[in-house]
Design a protein around this nucleic acid. Structure first.
Length: 258
DNA sequence: AGAAATGTTGCGCT
DNA sequence: AAGCGCAACATTTC
């Protein structure tokens, strides 16, 4: 359930913990959703040194010196836990043991988190990539679809989930009830800016509040997608509606284009 | 104490 | 025929 800014912080902290360490052992505990056979994963990465950990869309990637990459998608409820010696985490899917004596447990009570070797390149650009600019957005928003659904569509932009879609639309002052191809060009440009600023600001905030975070999600600072708030930072009443099967928070500060 | 939350996939309807 | 809604996944948290 972590979203892009959380994952960004996790990747930074995981790199701090494990970069330059050799993977001694990789154990698959619950393989039902693991897309690469356990033996193949082990063979590809065991005994190799971890080169880097980074985020791509909603995935975390563990890149090894031998060129192999483990892709991890936490889905709704996946979580990470660092352990020493013994992993006592419940619902473990896999564990990575490094030569500094520390281990990383990947858990998911729903068993939905996925792991795969060498994930293939995706077409859609990452939300923080320079490729997500006003030209790209204008092209992709030429659609009769709902704007929030498009923002969350991983085939359009990778990395934006339910909570940050609401935050970005509020920041851009566009109602989530809007139809994509009715949004004027100037507002599309503003949306492009909001994508970057909202996500980057959130990452900074999370890092400030929880410098060593590798699990969970921090949402207490969100302006509108926040069940504890009645009013937006601008003082407008926060309303609810369901879009794409998910709870959507917005206010009348946001213009509806239909 | 019962609903809500969270992402993806795949299916069926319009 | 693009776009939407729904179910399934399974447990924790309010």
């Amino acid at each position: 359930m972590p979203e892009l800014p959380d994952l960004q912080v996790f990747s930074y902290n995981l790199a701090k913990l494990f970069k330059g360490k050799k993977l001694v052992k990789l154990n698959v505990v619950n393989g039902k959703r693991i897309r690469t056979p356990a033996a193949k994963l082990k063979k590809a990465c065991e005994k190799s040194v971890l080169n880097d950990v980074y985020r791509e869309g909603k995935e975390l990637r563990f890149e090894f010196k031998n060129g192999n990459i483990i892709g991890l998608h936490l889905m709704l409820h996946g979580a990470l836990k660092v352990f020493e010696k013994k992993n006592d985490a419940k619902f473990t899917i896999a564990e990575l043991l490094f030569d500094n004596g520390k281990g990383l447990a990947i858990t998911d009570f729903q068993g939905m988190a996925t792991i795969y070797l060498n994930p293939k390149e995706k077409d859609a650009p990452d939300a923080l990539s320079p490729a997500v600019n006003k030209k790209y957005l204008a092209e992709k928003l030429n659609s009769k679809g709902n704007i929030k659904n498009l923002l969350m569509d991983q085939h359009v932009i990778r990395g934006i989930g339910n909570a940050y879609a609401d935050e970005i639309l509020w920041d851009a002052k566009i109602s989530p009830l809007s139809v994509a191809n009715k949004i004027p060009a100037t507002k599309v440009a503003r949306l492009g800016k909001s994508i970057k600023t909202v996500l980057k600001k959130a990452e900074k905030q999370i890092r400030k509040e929880h410098p060593d975070l590798i699990s969970g999600e921090i949402r207490d600072f969100l302006g509108v997608h926040n069940s504890r708030k009645k009013e937006s930072p601008g003082g407008s009443k926060i309303k609810n509606v369901v879009i794409g099967g998910r709870k959507t928070y917005y206010t009348d500060e946001q213009a509806v284009y239909k």
